[in-house]
Every structure is written in structure tokens, then in C-alpha cells.
Amino acid sequence: MNIVACIKETPSTTAEKSFGPDMRLERRKEDAIPNPFDEYTIEEALRQQEKHAGSTVTILCMGPATATDTLRKALAMGGDRAVLVSDSALAGSDAIGTARVLAAALQKIGFDLALFGSAAADAYGGVVPSATAEFLGLPLLSYASKLDLSGDSTARIQRAAEIGYNEAEAPLPALVSVVKSINEPRYPSMKGIMASKKKPLDTFSLADLGLDPSSVGGAAARERAISSEKVSTQRKGEMYQGNEGAADRVVAFLIEQKVL
């Protein structure tokens, strides 16, 4: 079984964020990490590989040429090889453009199961898995909190609901997006780290994927960021002073906050 884990390079969650004049996030190589949600994607790919002997795991990423470092970090967790799709024409792609590229790359790689995180920690769009499935004309089982592959032909997932969970299944090949509760990602081991530099890492350009540059990138993007604002972290205190009614107001506040 060919399993592909699709990941994104994002800035570290603790990195200082800044935006260019076009409202695109300015990405610095030193802040780049694998999207934290995608650790669950990779872990699930590795667990399915362990359950299905003879399977291979490919880690796929669209990003700048420097994203090879991020892919090496992902390979330190495990997996057999990595593929980076990188092309200067891709700059400014929106979620649909990204999905178009991932769909083409998945077709080129060949897969039975393609795994995604439910969203990326930088944009939180959450659109890419479904859009990729649409481009491929294949089923997407979204927000999986459990995944079972039976007989190498069907994927069955559980999706958490308000009470209990829903179950859904689809024939392979299929796409599955996972949520954090699906597993506990492993640490990359020392051996994994040292082995990661020896694993094959291929880079595809748009030409390799047979994609027209005008169909992707900033010019083709239909989604546009308009503004951004820093969340104020300044905490406002409220003072209740004096003897008259202060205690009652504190109690009322605590009830309102459902503390009492």
C-alpha cells in the first residue's frame, strides 16, 4: 500500500509573525517547522504502515526550496521518502491552487491512501483536503479521530460528534484528514534523525507535474487576505471597591463566568 502524508511548512507557533504589503505572511527559514497538526498526519501514516506490511510512506509538501529542511525533520519521525513541490511560480498560491498542485503530485506519485492534517497552523483555512479530493475525483473522509483500513480496499473512520461519533467509509484510493485525537505523535529518535539525511528526497517543478503556471500562484488566487490585526493581549481588570455591594458583584461575576 502506498501511503502519502501531505504536510505543510509553517512558521513556528512562537515565532513573531509579520505580513508583506500584499498581506502575505513573511516566511523566514529559521522559523520554519512542519505544521504542528501534520505531526498527527505523519504519525497516522507510520502507524498504518506498521499495520500493513510492505507499505511505503511518502511525505509530500508544497513549499519553498528551503522546505527540504522541514521534510528532513518529518523524515526523522519515519517514512521512506519525501517529495517537495517547489517552483517560483507557486508563490502566493491560495488553498485552491495548493490543492491543484497536491492533486497533480499525488497522481504522479501514485497512492492508495493520502493523509492530511485538518488545517495548517498559519492560515487555518482547512480547505485543502476537500479541494484536493475534488480535483482528484476521489472520496475524502474528513476529521478522522480513528482510521481503520480493512482488506486494503476500504478506509473506515470515526469522526467525533457532540455525543459519540459518526462512522464513515470509502473505497481506496481515498483521502483522509485527521484530527489531533487520532494518535500521539512519536518523538523522532536519534537513529531517525541520523537516517533522515540518507532518505531520498525528490523535488518536482510545475513542469514535472504538467501544470500550467498561470493556474496557480498569486495571480490565479481567488482568495485574498484583506487585513490582519494582532490580538490584543492586554488584560483589562475590573475593580470593585468599597464595602457597598462589592462582594455581591464579585459573586455575580463568578456566576456569570460559570465558576460558581
Partner: peptide, 15 residues
């Protein structure tokens, strides 16, 4: 090297 950096992240996370 990059391997040192990856190793550093591993130990940092472990701690």
C-alpha cells in the same frame, strides 16, 4: 549541522 539542530529539538521537547 542540521542533524544537531534536529537533535536539539528532540532533547528540548523531551525536557
Amino acid at each position: 549541522t542540521q542533524e544537531h539542530e534536529m537533535f536539539r529539538q528532540l532533547v528540548r521537547r523531551f525536557v
